[in-house]
């Protein structure tokens, strides 16, 4: 299947875990992106932040680091840390398919972010596993009703460009 459905129940749980992580670490933004760059959920001070671009760049960063790992004969790097003058970015890989990223400043410490992110990643891994199982069992339904695109027409698509 070439699409991923974020069912409502799991989506809310992902957001709850992100919110808890953000609050426990006193960080600015916690986000999840799929490894291919698709943004899944963002929590925190996202006003004025281009979250889609942030997600794409996080995914690009992780992908480049993975390439580097392969080149060095490593299986992969499970976490990546970028340190700035004001902002820092901590990225953790979840189940080799998703990335948990935490943006934080001087109000917190790397140690705390690292510890809490690891706990959150373990919980998120279970949610994503459940999501995949649900998709397998429930290929026909889209979680909250029938497929929204069942009866789209070429005209609907043409209208997007008018």
């Amino acid at each position: 299947m070439s699409f991923l459905v974020l069912y409502g129940e799991e989506y809310e749980e992902i957001k709850r875990i992100l919110l808890q992580l953000k609050e426990e670490t006193n960080s600015r933004i916690a986000l999840i992106v799929e490894k291919n760059g698709q943004p899944i959920a963002f929590i925190g001070e996202v006003d004025g932040v281009d979250t889609t671009s942030l997600g794409s760049l996080v995914a690009g960063n992780v992908a480049a680091t993975e390439g580097l790992a392969r080149l060095l004969g490593e299986q992969g790097f499970s976490l990546i840390f970028d340190e700035g003058e004001r902002e820092n970015l901590h990225m953790t890989l979840i189940a080799s398919k998703f990335i948990l990223a935490v943006l934080f400043d001087k109000k917190t410490s790397l140690g705390l972010v690292r510890l809490r992110a690891k706990n959150a990643a373990n919980r998120l891994e279970k949610v994503f596993k459940r999501l995949e199982e649900k998709m397998e069992q429930d290929k026909e339904k889209m979680g909250e009703g029938e497929s929204p695109f069942e009866d789209i027409s070429e005209e609907d698509i043409e209208n997007l460009f008018k």
Binding site: S2, L4, V5, L6, Y11, E34, N36, G37, Q38, P148
Partner: peptide, 15 residues
């Protein structure tokens, strides 16, 4: 892999 989010009512695709 397109992402369908029924709660947010959005579909995200990669070209």
């Amino acid at each position: 892999m397109a992402l369908l989010n029924p709660r947010q009512k959005e579909l995200i695709c990669k070209i």
